[in-house]
Computed example of a mutant assay.
Amino acid sequence: MSSPAAAAAPAGSPPQRSPLRAHWQRLAAREQTLVLLAAAVIGLALLWWLLLAPALHTLKTSAARHAAVDAQLRQMQQWQAEAQQLQDAPRTPALDAPAQLQRSVQQLPGGSARVVIAGDQATVTLQAVPAEALAQWLAQLRTSAHAVPQQAHLKRSPASAAPTWDGTLVLTLPPD
């Protein structure tokens, strides 16, 4: 079966041209060249914006992103080594952790430090404890009593010239 448009055309006549093709044929050669040139410029711009520019941006930023990922990897490896060291450290019986915490608090230099133990949490109150001594004490506490800091409310002591800290630390002790 034939279409109505084909039936309307006489049997030996050429097929109808589309209006766009007919318009193209009416343009002068110079105009056709300019239209082709404009289409090529638009095509190249689209090629640049959609394909090349994103790839070049990725290439330019890849070194910085690679460095950031490397830094994250080094940090994670450091944490892994620290976790492995803590896992390999000899286990302290849970009954000794509060006693070790009490002894270590008494050895802190500076003003005074008190500890209150309630279940598996300990609250340590510090007054004028030197910053370096506090850092060493926390590292030692983590390995000896396996106590992990959960909260810290510290502020620098205003009365001393050397950096000292006042405040409270809430520590979690290992389970029984």
Rank of each mutant, 00 (worst) to 15 (best):
residue 2 S to M: 02
residue 7 A to T: 03
residue 8 A to T: 10
residue 9 A to F: 08
residue 9 A to Q: 10
residue 11 A to I: 03
residue 11 A to R: 05
residue 12 G to M: 09
residue 14 P to W: 08
residue 15 P to V: 11
residue 19 P to N: 11
residue 23 H to K: 07
residue 26 R to S: 01
residue 28 A to K: 15
residue 30 R to Y: 12
residue 31 E to N: 08
residue 32 Q to I: 00
residue 33 T to P: 06
residue 38 A to W: 02
residue 39 A to H: 15
residue 45 A to Y: 09
residue 50 L to Q: 15
residue 51 L to P: 06
residue 52 L to F: 12
residue 54 P to N: 02
residue 56 L to D: 04
residue 56 L to F: 08
residue 57 H to Q: 15
residue 57 H to F: 15
residue 58 T to H: 15
residue 59 L to V: 14
residue 61 T to A: 06
residue 62 S to F: 07
residue 64 A to N: 03
residue 69 V to N: 08
residue 71 A to T: 04
residue 74 R to Y: 13
residue 75 Q to Y: 00
residue 76 M to Q: 05
residue 79 W to C: 07
residue 83 A to F: 12
residue 88 D to G: 08
residue 89 A to Q: 11
residue 92 T to V: 15
residue 95 L to Q: 06
residue 96 D to E: 11
residue 97 A to P: 03
residue 98 P to N: 03
residue 104 S to V: 07
residue 106 Q to M: 13
residue 107 Q to D: 13
residue 108 L to I: 01
residue 108 L to T: 03
residue 111 G to D: 06
residue 113 A to V: 04
residue 117 I to N: 07
residue 117 I to F: 08
residue 120 D to M: 06
residue 122 A to Y: 09
residue 123 T to S: 11
residue 124 V to G: 09
residue 124 V to Y: 04
residue 126 L to H: 05
residue 131 A to R: 01
residue 137 W to H: 05
residue 138 L to P: 10
residue 142 R to Y: 05
residue 145 A to Q: 06
residue 146 H to G: 07
residue 149 P to V: 03
residue 156 R to F: 10
residue 162 A to F: 01
residue 163 P to H: 00
residue 164 T to S: 05
residue 167 G to H: 02
residue 167 G to D: 01
residue 171 L to K: 02
residue 172 T to G: 01
residue 174 P to V: 04
